[in-house]
Structures are given as structure tokens and as C-alpha cells.
Design a protein around this nucleic acid. Structure first.
Length: 417
RNA sequence: GGAGAGGUGGCCGAGUGGUCGAAGGCGCAGCAUUGGAAAUGCUGUGUACUCUUACGGGUACCGAGGGUUCGAAUCCCUCCCUCUCCGCCA
């Protein structure tokens, strides 16, 4: 949510931002008009109430005041109704305004326009045609998408046997690494109410992406970010305790409405996946710094795994409305023959915190709205990257060193028969 | 699923129609005291919106929404949530 005071004081800034971010359906001038009408009416209503309160006090000694107050009632209640209707309309419009942009967000329409910032690692050289994770998964019998579709729907899948062990090892290892870096681990609810999704900006912007539970004010989470950021909703955090660095490992559910046909091969774009997330609550002046920190953590994990990757600065067109700035980390997938997104790391500034009411208070009593950062640590996609990067000619996958203590084996080989 | 209890400020907890934004306590901040600290004493300390150049006003908020009344934390209705016990179950 954008601060309505910015709208009042500098509407041009909002207009420019909307144009930049291709938001065309909010009429800023009309919104301003509604707001000034609202303020006028608010003034009226409060004036009448003040008068009523004053007269009510006199009623005990002056019975005539009673009649005067009665006369105020109709006028007051009419105006109150209009006032609350206006307020709802204004808030609805406001909720569609996108966050402001960092000045270094590249122009552009889609991921092709993202700015490549860094490339790390040497791509392995193969004397055979590397397979993609789908083929490897079938060959090794560690990914079972067919039965996923049978028991649930296309877009769901099973990790099986050593594949499941490898995935579990990765998630556990990643969690432990983040805890070592000062993050607090959570096991979180995997469902959230509407208010929670609204507060984190997933509503109204990504409404078609959520699985809604029937007859309940509950939806399956699309990411643990939704519940982890809302965790501190309506709270005032003590400034000295910031930053709060949290991590959670949860399944994520997405309908992926409208994305059929796009990168659907394998288990890259699915309805349910596992994600270890980084969440940071911090002071406004520190969010850029912790945004970088989360990126460093993502890079650290991939480096430990020895997976080649690149870092991109996501362009305007590819950046979700709540985001102020976003880095994607794309791992190299030899079977696919290109880089593919495995992590995204967004500085949301105060956009979510304002909606959710996550504030901080300093020692001198000064209050403000915190900034939040949401960043991936690892997901199933990283397991896929491991598979594709560390495959051998016969399909054997070599387990990265750092995961071996958790898998208990060094490689996954095809069953000889 | 059955039965009961309860939702008041950062926390605990009083408060059954006006003097209640709300006693008291804890916590927190400042001051005093001290070599320093503890203890003690005094003072202050909710949030949001809005008006005002400022000083400072006003309005709203005691789970949510409605109602009664000149006036509601307090009375009435509806809903939500939390907790406890029993049953069932991972």
C-alpha cells in the first residue's frame, strides 16, 4: 500500500509510477477528488459529533439539550454512511496502486529485458548429451509425475526414494545454513485467510494464483512469505531487535492459471513445490543492505553446491506490483541448455508492512513502518539443478559434498537390471 | 462433534448508563538518590485519523457488526475468535 499522504502531496509521483508500471485502471485524479471529498465530510461529521458530545453533557442539567441532539441525529447518520462508503472506495482504489521503484530497476517488458549483473561458476563440459531432470528423474525412478497426476492432478508429483532423500537433505541443509547465519527457523501454517493474502500484496494482484478452500476464509499459501510477514501484523517491534531474520520451509501451492504451455516440461512449473524462504523485517534505511544480504545467502548456497548461476536485476515489466526491487538468481541447467530461475529476492520496502501494520518503535518513542524482504533460499528447482549439473553418462547423479552428511550416499545410480 | 468459560491499553487486571481513554499493578522512559548498581521515591508513558505555521484542539477505538438512549466498555441482538473439559483422531 502506498501512503495516502504521498497521493495528497505529490500526485504526479504516483501518476508517473503508474505509467512506468503499466497500471492504467486507477484514475488518480478521480481518486484525489474522492479523497478531498472524504476529508471535507470527515470534518463535518467530526464537528457534528463534537457538538453532540458537548450537548449530551448538558443534558443532565438542561433537558432542552436533549431535543437539540435528537435533531442532529439524522444529519449525522446520513453523513456517516456516505463517509464510510467513500472510505471503502478509496481504500479499494489505493490497494491497486503499485509500490514505487528503486531508481536502478531496468526498463523493460519481460524477463528478456532483465539486466545480467553477474555470472558465477564453470559450466561442466560433457562428452555426452546431458539429459534434463525429467528424463533423469524417470531413468533413476526418483520423480513420479504420472502418479502425481493420478492421485491429485497434472502438475503434482512425487519425489521417490533417493530423490526424496536428496531433496530432504537439500532443504534441511539450507535451513541449517541460514540458522548459522542468524535466521530463526519456523514451521508455519500452510493456509492463510484473505486478510493475510491482502496484507502481503498477493491480493488483489495475484488473485487467480491461489487455491481457495471451499466454505472457508482460507487459501493454501503460495509461499511462506504470506504467513511469515503477516506473523508480525498489527505489532510494534522494538527497533533494537531489528533486523528479524526468519526462515521457513513449507510447501507452496499455485494454480498457475494461464501458464500452461510455458516451461511445463519436467517439474519446473508445478502446483505444489517445497521452498525454504528468507524473510527479513528491518528499519527502512537498512532494507537495501539486507536485500543484498539475502542475495549473498542465495549465492553462498549455490556456491557451496557448486552450481553455476547468474544474477539478474529484474526489469519493471517482470517485477510484481508490490516489489521495489528484485534480484533473480538463475541456475544453469545443462539438460535444458540455459539458465533458469531458482531464486527470487524482493525488497518490498514498506508496501506489505503498511498494509499489515508492522511497525517499529525507537527508544525515543519515534515510530515508523518497517521494511520487509522476501527471498528464496532453495526450492525443488535446486534439486533439479543438482540433477542436471552433476549427471554422468549413464544417468548417475553425483551428490554435492555438502549434502552427503544428510543423504548418507554419494550418488544416485540407475538400477542395474 | 458435545458442554462450559472468556475476549478491556505493551502485558496483567478493575470497571454494570454520564465525572471512563478507561483504577491498580507490571513493564518502559526521565529525574532524584548512589562511588557505581540494586532497592526506593517522584514524574511521564495507548493507537489511528484529522484540524492548526506552531502551542494545541477535535473525532474514533474496551473482539466485530447492528440496536436501545440525549449519552454505551457497561443494556439488547447477531457474528467472530480464544481457552477449558468430554468424545474422536494424527
Amino acid at each position: 500500500m502506498i501512503d495516502i499522504k504521498v497521493l495528497r502531496n505529490n500526485p504526479e509521483k504516483i501518476k508517473t509510477n503508474c505509467i512506468k508500471r503499466s497500471v492504467t485502471h486507477v484514475d488518480i485524479d478521480k481518486l484525489l477528488e474522492m479523497d478531498s471529498h472524504y476529508l471535507q465530510l470527515l470534518n463535518d461529521v467530526e464537528g457534528i459529533r463534537a457538538k453532540r458530545n458537548q450537548l449530551s453533557k448538558e443534558c443532565q442539567t438542561n433537558p432542552e439539550a436533549r431535543e437539540v441532539v435528537k435533531g442532529l441525529k439524522q444529519e449525522l447518520s446520513d453523513k456517516e454512511v456516505t463517509l464510510s462508503e467513500l472510505k471503502v472506495q478509496i481504500e479499494q482504489q489505493m490497494s491497486w496502486l503499485p509500490n514505487f521503484l528503486s531508481s536502478d530497476v531496468p526498463e523493460g517488458n519481460d524477463d528478456a529485458d532483465n539486466e545480467e549483473l553477474k555470472i558465477w561458476g564453470d559450466k561442466a563440459v560433457y562428452d555426452f548429451d546431458p539429459l534434463d531432470h525429467q528424463e533423469l528423474g524417470e531413468k533413476l525412478d526418483i520423480i513420479d509425475a504420472k502418479r502425481g497426476a493420478k492421485v491429485a492432478q497434472s502438475g503434482f508429483y512425487f519425489w521417490k526414494g533417493k530423490g526424496a532423500q536428496l531433496a530432504s537433505a537439500l532443504f534441511f541443509w539450507a535451513q541449517q545454513e541460514l540458522v548459522k547465519k542468524g535466521f530463526t527457523l519456523f514451521i508455519a501454517p500452510c493456509a492463510a485467510k484473505e486478510k493475510t493474502l491482502y496484507g502481503t500484496g498477493y491480493l488483489p494482484f495475484f488473485a487467480d494464483q491461489t487455491y481457495q478452500l471451499e466454505n472457508e476464509d482460507l487459501a493454501l499459501i503460495g509461499t511462506s512469505e504470506q504467513v511469515m510477514v503477516a506473523y508480525h501484523g498489527d505489532e510494534i517491534l522494538t527497533a533494537e531487535t531489528l533486523p528479524l531474520c526468519y526462515t521457513a520451509n513449507t510447501p507452496c501451492f499455485r494454480t498457475e492459471a494461464g501458464s500452461y504451455g510455458k516451461e511445463t516440461r519436467g517439474i519446473f512449473r508445478v502446483h505444489q513445490f517445497q521452498k525454504v524462504e528468507q524473510i527479513v523485517f528491518c528499519l527502512p534505511e537498512e532494507s537495501e543492505r539486507y536485500h543484498e544480504m539475502c542475495l549473498e545467502n542465495e549465492e553462498y548456497l549455490l556456491q557451496q553446491l557448486n552450481i553455476p548461476y547468474r544474477v539478474v536485476n529484474v526489469c519493471v515489466g517482470d517485477l510484481g506490483a508490490p516489489g521495489y526491487k528484485k534480484y533473480d538468481v538463475d541456475a544453469y541447467f545443462p539438460g535444458f541448455g540455459n539458465y533458469r530461475e531458482v531464486c527470487s529476492n524482493t525488497n518490498l520496502t514498506d508496501f506489505q508492512a503498511r498494509r499489515l501494520g508492522v511497525r517499529y518503535q525507537q527508544n525515543n518513542g519515534k515510530k515508523g513502518i518497517v521494511h520487509t524482504i522476501s527471498a528464496t533460499a532453495v526450492t525443488d528447482r535446486v534439486v533439479c539443478a543438482i540433477m542436471e549439473n552433476f549427471q554422468e553418462a549413464d544417468g548417475t547423479i553425483i551428490v554435492p559434498n555438502v549434502l552427503r552428511p544428510f543423504t548418507g550416499f554419494d550418488c544416485i545410480s540407475p538400477k542395474s537390471q
